[in-house]
């Protein structure tokens, strides 16, 4: 069986990478192929990496409050490259009212503080065929 390929990305100026790195390890330990972009990637950088690495899943980690600006831009860049069909996840500190906005913009799931990495693994496995 092909392994599920996931891009974990940090957009914007935010340097808080504890969550991104913990999730990246948990996905790897669950048998997925994980590519971590590192910090301060532009929406173009992230979309480009997603295409180059041929991933089925893109996960953004944002704790800076800039999600309403950054998330739609990443989605736009993915669509512009014909990669709009990836499973698109967001994690971080996202207020409840913004969750609806992000979902309407095309995010499949938002994972807030206290999420078990098992839930993220399960969500990905149930939505992507390996």
């Amino acid at each position: 069986m092909e392994r599920i390929r996931v891009l974990v990305a940090k957009p914007g100026l935010d340097g808080h990478d504890r969550g991104a790195r913990v999730v990246a390890r948990a996905l790897r330990d669950a048998g997925m192929e994980v590519i971590y972009t590192g910090l301060r990637q532009t929406p173009e950088d992230i979309a480009e990496a997603a295409v180059q690495e041929d991933v089925q899943v893109v996960g953004l980690s944002i704790l800076s409050g800039a999600h309403n600006t950054l998330v739609p831009r990443v989605l736009e860049q993915l669509r512009a490259r014909g990669a709009g069909n990836v499973l698109f996840l967001v994690g971080g500190i996202i207020p409840e009212e913004d969750v609806e906005f992000l979902k309407s913009a095309g995010v499949h799931a938002v994972f807030g503080p206290g999420t078990s990495t098992d839930d993220i693994v399960e969500f990905i496995k149930s939505h992507v065929k390996g």
Binding site: G65, A66, N68, T69
Partner: peptide, 22 residues
Amino acid sequence: DLPTIMGYDSDHPRADGEVGKL
């Protein structure tokens, strides 16, 4: 805020969406 922390003015393209947030 993050643009100040990273040494960018508030009109820098990388500051968009982050001004006054943190």
